[in-house]
Amino acid sequence: MQVDPRGPRVAAALTAAVLAVALVVPSPAREIVLAVQAVVFALGAFVGVGATPYAQLFARVVRPRLAAPTEWEDARPPQFAQLVGLIFVVVAIAGFLTGITVLGFVATAAALVAALLNAAIGLCLGCELYLITRRLATSLA
């Protein structure tokens, strides 16, 4: 499946904003915001990048105001990146809930950096991890 590459960029910007809010609000709002973002990541990872509310917002509000895309991209890289994002956010929630606050902050911050890089320069850290995880998976098998 092909997607307009500007969609994941806009979604990444919204993700970054949500994660930034999660960092600065007190508990339990923090955990709730992270849980909402986890649901969004899960939709993106398991249903498709077009299934998230962020993608819907892009498709209905942003895209009609833009020119047609000059190129399309494969939907699998951003979809894989959503899975990586989900893992980080789940780890963050686990950290905050179990009192390992440092883990919660570090995992949230890592997800935030990845989302900001994607939004700002189009660098997909989750995608960069893909080959390394494949290497590890086969060397462990």
């Binding site: 930034a20 960092l23 600065v24 609000v25 923090r30 606050t101 902050f105 949230t108 911050a109 935030l112 950096v113 900001l116 890089l117 700002a120 320069i121 660098l123």
Partner: peptide, 23 residues
């Protein structure tokens, strides 16, 4: 308060990674 510091650190880290990636 900690959260604001983490947010600031994340922004700095983003800039550093972005410039490193470009280079």
């Amino acid at each position: 308060m900690t959260g604001w510091w983490v947010l600031a650190a994340a922004l700095v880290a983003t800039f550093l990674v972005a410039f490193a990636a470009r280079a």
